[in-house]
Write a protein that binds this DNA or RNA. Structure first.
Length: 574
RNA sequence: GCGCCCUUAGCUCAGUUGGAUAGAGCAACGGACUUCUAAUCCGUAGGUCACAGGUUCAAAUCCUGUAGGGCGUGCCA
């Protein structure tokens, strides 16, 4: 297992600190980060400044003391002290050469698997039954899928679970609608559409008419209590919904290990509630079974967690608690990640608190994201208005990409153009989401989601395509020679960037933010384009050519692998 | 009312968790295709990091307050 450059530098700094007999605060770890200006070398550490402050000594003097015993052998040039006390490191060319060339035979492109693999259940996407996926589902679906891919790549055991909303109050509405207004003919033509129409009709009716609202709740309670007629309807609706969802997930290349929706835990809810009562965790309040948190300062003055409602029905707190139990006991989850919108913070704080009271000690991680807003700057909701559907968005993306391919590369076979259009269009939509910080709210915009210029997936795909084009022009098998020798500044910059893939991937899981990987890939493509402009590959000779071929090959592999971790594919031509 | 989150270039957003002169993309302007794919590249212009204090060698980043916005706040999920 090869250490990354920052890890190596950090280790040697720690050695030096020990050798220099510096009186370290407990658990002090020197920070090492890439520089933002090449004049300062490749990496920098502010350790001397931090320590200088804590120990009351001059930072630059301390830095000199550290560097007097720092061992740069086979790693970097002798480090320099700069500014108020930064220590700057420049990686040795020989080491860059060696590591770069080594990447050719390294399957995971320099990325080490984690030392302590965990079993991680990731809960994402979770659409509702009988409602089509719309643009509001983009975030959970794409972010969750990317996190699953990245965690797997790093060596964790990942179990993805689509916890679909197949049991809630909206289902009562479907049942009510099914029993009262089902239009069989419309249903045969377009099952999903008919279900949606049904839902909408009942929803608006229930808003105005309290009796309808109550009737819906009653249908739900009947279902939850096992009424055979309602069960039968429910089963049919699930099958239909599942097939509708598969049509969306398929082209997006998103797959789940399990589809354990809310309904999967129905049989457990009554007993769970009783256990909660018996253990004193839950109490009755205003006719509902609730958990209060008097000992938790953050939750004490908040409304209670409602496990069972007045009408006897179970809310999603009950199913979520049962779900955690299942994941801990059956899946042996060390961690459970919830990729869910930020507004549900309180709900998960409560549910996690209940789980802990029940002795479930797996790490429960809420991974929130900001809202997608409509033109009015309000959250997109299905209840009012009509947010664009995910299927339509994808279709439009593919169409726009198809037009551009037609324009740029009319000579390609038609079926290849189709494939390219899918790869590019879907990539653009995914990247638009994943390149953004997950907590940022944004106003949904077709043009933004479908942009194909600048910092977009097609930009990264284009860099890959240019490289594949180089190799297509090579006669026969590519020969990368026996070593790399970096001369030009653009080559060195690119080599360093490529070697930093090993830093960028693990970085994502520090804060569960795929956008940090997207940023890295954009910078890589940008660096590559600089290299591409000033360093001809095929016209070069000897070791220069070998080196440039190596740089190109590794760049294409990192782009392909990196994009794959975001769930984005690359075409060979575009 | 209370709680959480947000405010960075005309627009959309990054900003490696406190580091050196705050960066990209769009849009604007000026250049580069008989060359390994121009979905590209190079250059110009664009900033009181909402505002006011504070913490320190160092603040877009941490603390306090103010303004504006979003979300949540007992039986939807």
């Amino acid at each position: 297992m090869t250490r990354t450059f920052p890890e190596e530098i950090r280790t040697r700094l720690q050695h030096a600190l020990g050798a220099a007999d510096v009186d370290l605060p407990s658990r002090f770890v020197p920070a090492v980060s890439p520089t933002n200006d090449p004049r300062f070398g490749d990496y920098q550490s502010n350790a001397a400044m931090i320590l200088g402050k804590q120990l009351g000594t001059n930072p630059r003097a301390l830095a000199e003391k550290i560097l007097a015993v720092f061992d740069p052998e086979k790693l970097c040039d002798p480090p320099e002290i700069a500014g108020p006390g930064f220590i700057n490191f420049r990686i040795q060319s020989a080491l860059l050469n060696e590591r770069l060339f080594g990447l050719l035979t390294h399957d995971s492109l320099g990325v080490s698997t984690v030392a302590d693999p965990q079993t991680i259940v990731i809960d994402f996407s979770a659409p509702n039954v009988a409602k089509p996926m719309h643009v509001g589902h983009i975030r959970s679906t794409f972010i969750g899928d990317a996190l699953a891919r990245i965690a797997r790549f790093l060596g964790h055991t990942v179990i993805s679970d689509n916890h679909i909303g197949d049991w809630g109050k909206q289902f009562g509405m479907i049942l009510y609608g099914w029993r009262n207004f089902l239009d069989e003919s419309a249903f045969e033509k377009d099952p999903i559409g008919a279900l949606v129409a049904l839902y909408k009709r009942v929803n608006s009716l229930a808003k105005e008419d309290q009796a309808v609202n109550t009737a819906c709740k009653e249908e739900l309670v009947k279902l939850q209590q096992g009424d055979p007629g309602n069960i039968e309807i429910w089963e049919r609706v699930i099958v239909l919904t599942r097939s509708g969802l598969d049509k969306i997930y398929g082209p997006l290349d998103i797959h789940f290990d399990h589809w354990l929706g809310e309904s999967a835990y129905n049989a457990r809810l009554a007993a769970l509630t009783e256990e909660l009562m018996e253990s004193g965790t839950a109490t009755e309040s205003e006719g509902a079974i609730c958990v209060f948190f008097p000992d938790d300062p953050a939750l004490a003055d908040k409304p209670p967690c409602i496990v069972r409602k007045q009408d006897g029905g179970f809310g999603y707190a009950a199913t979520d608690i049962a779900t955690i139990e299942h994941r801990v006991h059956e899946f042996k989850a060390d961690e459970i990640w919830y990729v869910v919108g930020a507004p549900q913070q309180l709900h998960f704080d409560q549910v996690f608190a209940v789980a802990r009271k029940r002795g479930l000690d797996s790490a429960l991680v809420f991974i929130p994201f900001g809202s997608i807003l409509g033109d009015d700057r309000k959250m997109l909701r299905t209840r009012e208005g009509e947010p664009p559907q995910l299927g339509d968005l994808i279709e439009e993306a593919v169409e726009r990409a198809r037009q551009i391919v037609e324009e740029k590369n009319p000579g390609l076979p038609s079926d290849e153009k189709d494939t390219i259009a899918k790869t590019v269009g879907i990539g653009a939509v995914k990247y638009a989401e994943l390149s953004q910080h997950r907590m940022t709210d944004y106003i949904f915009s077709w043009d933004k989601m479908l942009s194909m210029q600048g910092n977009t997936a097609p930009y990264l795909q284009n860099a890959y395509v240019r490289i594949r084009s180089i190799f297509r022009k090579l006669e026969g098998e590519a020969d990368f020679g026996e070593r790399a020798e970096l001369e030009d500044e653009n080559e060195k910059k690119l080599a360093l960037k490529l070697l930093q893939f090993s830093e960028a991937v693990p970085e994502v899981l520090v804060d569960h933010r795929p956008n940090s990987l997207a940023n890295y890939l954009y910078e890589l493509a940008d660096t590559f384009h600089g290299f591409y402009e000033s360093c001809p590959v095929l016209r070069a000779e000897g070791v220069t050519r070998d080196t440039r071929l190596t740089l190109s090959e590794i760049t294409s592999r990192v782009l392909c692998q990196g994009l794959d971790l975001l769930g984005i594919e690359v075409p060979d031509r575009m």
